[in-house]
Nucleic acid binder design. Structure first.
Lengths: 385, 385
DNA sequence: AACAAAAACGTGTGCGCACACGAAAACATA
DNA sequence: TATGTTTTCGTGTGCGCACACGTTTTTGTT
């Protein structure tokens, strides 16, 4: 058995000896001794020790661990075997102290002004910056106006910026493809949040399962509805981001009812309005309607209309905890909101990069956020998180 | 302005100089220079630097920072002023490397066998142990059988054990009071999860808001119910843990309907069964009942009964994602489950202690878990977390 | 065989802090 | 004044690792 012990360990042993002298009088082996004093054996093997065991210098071990080359295959195998055998894990405190590596992260997202959803994302990101700042994480923001021109301008800036990781959301699909093609060359960790582009570049994804969230909305409608079962889907189509996420939600919504034929008598109708403006709505749209599904964050517009015209008893299900949505949730006009947990998405995005860059952890490639059902009675606690 | 720069910083500057030589040619001040090269100024002041500025030795600064005494008041004030002015934050990598401090945590909880809820808690704890092990966090388990005798026996073991933090759940109220009285003397951070005992000992609490969760259940019942509005509350009273959490939930449940007089025609009845056994139930209990609230994790018993007797159309709302509950959720017999997020509670408990002990962070004293509404369509994603 | 070039390897230094130890200064007592 | 005691302070060492630099060994070429 390999014995290695820091001076602190020894100090501990002596400190404890007074109290546990009976252990000391018995002849015991080292394993037992360590257990008695709660000294752990893992993690205690160091690079220096490995070097000794392999009959090489610490520098060689270092080169192998960091795959810097300039080592003979023979030594590589020998050292790796020892690392494997003793389960060497580098001491992250020492590692980061020595390397003194800053972890610069480029945050490439839309500006949050006027966009509550992205404001939440950035709140989470800012929170993470605070939490991980002490580990050397530094955020550098590249925020663009919500249009393709501004996005493209910012692309070059991001490409020029040297950093260790990228936090990105491929909102503009075509433009993002071009950007990623270029960014690929950098070969640094990339995390996508909110929406995803697969197979273009190795990356991590953190966001929702859009289809499943629509499917869930179907379930909630089936709860909320009483006897009349005319469901209206209100599409507010202007939003650029709507495309894929939006369609997936609607798909999921219909899928629910297709897969539950026992829920009979449901009828569906759709209306589309171009602007997120209450004046686009008319009374006749809501004739005989018992419940409404709004597959993006604009449920408040429908709620506003219903309130203005004193229409009651229609259930509304929407997305996202915008202030206006919350207002109508509180007044009982909106019944359910499905939360995408944007703060958590942002936080986790930074957290992922921190874990990858600083801690060298292996991570799941995709992290779907939990589908969060929000009603009036649990939204404050939902926000606090 | 204070200029302090590690050799790595200088290396960076030189590296960047080639690319940004135009900046160099302009006469600029240091602040701008640092911004250009993305060097941050915070965190750059070290103990050595402070010592220089205060005309004392690093050892003196160290004594002041750690409040070890043996320093004149004059120097204390001088150094503190400098620390304040330059916003010194200790480098946690260096700090932990040097102190080599282990963070031993006593986990004092009921055994998880046969208790799915506590199994989840321990899963979260185990996950945290993995995540924070590399930071020196070490868990030592003190798990007792779910009875007061076993609990009390374990108390002395926990009291004897030397560690840096305690994770605890005051399930047995009276016995816990005695235990805490003793433990107080240790003066180390304590985190309580699941349930809380206030004002006995300084500590952190992580758990649910029981009253609010009952209140939420009221809202969900109001959704789930159609025209018939006879609500049955099924109390399965055997469980010891039931006491306060359990009563709070029922209180919250009734409070919801009291505060919503517009929800008319609701009638309530209660039954109590002693054992969590389906045979305790009879058909007549469910006469004219349209929905059922089970204020603990035993909703599956009611579901089982209804299934056995082919009773359909009764809504059930319960707590906790036990396997049996999930089964009935999937088959559509249970409609809603409120999740206490036990994994997350356990994880956060360890996380809190880590943050306190290793990172010296200031933490919120109470963390209420989000009230998590689970239906068939979002439970898998809820578990994944 | 002589030499250059490339590959393989070892040594040493410092990251910023915690803490032990001993030295110096201040104070107290005879 | 001499000596002991307490308070205050400075120096030095090492935590484990990353990385620069220089040295040795191997390979290739004439």
């Amino acid at each position: 058995m390999l014995i290695s012990c820091t001076h602190t360990c020894i100090a501990n042993i002596y400190k404890n000896l007074n109290k546990k002298s009976d252990y000391w009088n018995k002849k015991i082996n080292f394993t037992t001794l360590f257990k008695v004093f709660n000294l752990n054996l893992r993690n205690i093997i160091t690079i220096k020790k490995i070097a000794e065991l392999a009959n090489v210098s610490p520098g060689t071990v270092d080169r192998i661990i960091h795959k810097r080359g300039q080592v003979s295959q023979e030594n590589i195998d020998k050292v790796n075997a020892i690392i494997e055998k003793y389960g060497f894990k580098r001491n992250i405190f020492a590692s980061n102290l020595a390397s003194n590596k800053k972890c610069k992260i480029a945050v490439f997202l839309p500006k949050s002004e006027k966009l509550e959803y992205w404001e939440s994302q950035l709140n989470g990101i800012e929170k993470a910056a605070e939490d991980f700042g002490k580990f050397g994480v530094e955020l550098h923001y590249f925020l663009y106006d919500f249009n393709t021109v501004s996005f493209q301008k910012m692309c070059t800036k991001v490409l020029d910026f040297e950093c260790e990781g990228l936090l990105f959301s491929p909102i503009f699909h075509e433009e993002s493809l071009l950007f990623l093609d270029e960014y690929k060359k950098k070969d640094i960790p990339v995390v996508m949040i909110d929406s995803d582009i697969k197979d273009k570049i190795p990356h991590y994804y953190i966001g929702q399962d859009a289809f499943q969230s629509g499917y869930l909305a179907g379930r909630l409608i089936s709860f909320a509805v009483k006897n009349d079962r005319n469901v209206l889907i209100v599409k507010v189509a202007k939003e650029i981001e709507s495309t894929s996420v939006y369609l997936q939600r609607i798909k999921g919504f219909y899928a629910f009812f297709e897969e539950h034929p026992e829920l009979t008598n449901f009828t569906f109708s759709e209306i589309t309005i171009k602007d997120p403006d209450v004046n686009q709505l008319t009374l006749e749209m809501f004739q005989d309607i018992s419940s409404i599904f709004v597959p993006n964050s604009r449920a408040y517009i429908v709620a506003q209309f219903l309130e203005q015209h004193h229409i009651k008893g229609i259930r509304i299900i929407g997305y996202d905890l915008l202030k206006e949505n919350i207002t109508y949730l509180n007044s009982g006009i909106i019944d359910f909101l499905i939360n995408q947990k944007p703060e958590e998405q942002g936080y986790m995005g930074v957290n992922y990069l921190y874990k990858k860059i600083i801690l060298h952890e292996n991570l799941e490639e995709t992290h779907f956020m939990q589908l969060d059902i929000i009603v009036k009675e649990n939204y404050t606690l939902a926000l606090k998180k």
